[in-house]
Amino acid sequence: MIKYQRDNCGYCGACVAVCPQQILELTENEVTKGIGCDECGNCTIVCPMGAFTREDEP
């Protein structure tokens, strides 16, 4: 699954621009993730800070 770590986020919105499901929203100091992630990984590629990572299921 794709994990969002708010501690690493710089609130730039690059992830929002590439989310094909359009479930990401940038507020002032957080990206909120709605339901429906298809785990394409686009956000993990464009995030300058590595706030989005792909984690293996436990």
């Binding site: 590439v18 940038l26 464009v46």
Partner: peptide, 26 residues
């Protein structure tokens, strides 16, 4: 409203970008 524009999508003028079309900057 910037690169993260939701207005343009709501208006039906854009679809989400491909990662290769976004420069990731620091």
């Amino acid at each position: 409203d910037g690169v993260e524009s939701n207005m343009t999508r709501l208006a039906g003028l854009t679809s989400p970008n491909q990662p290769r079309d976004i420069g990731s900057c620091a």
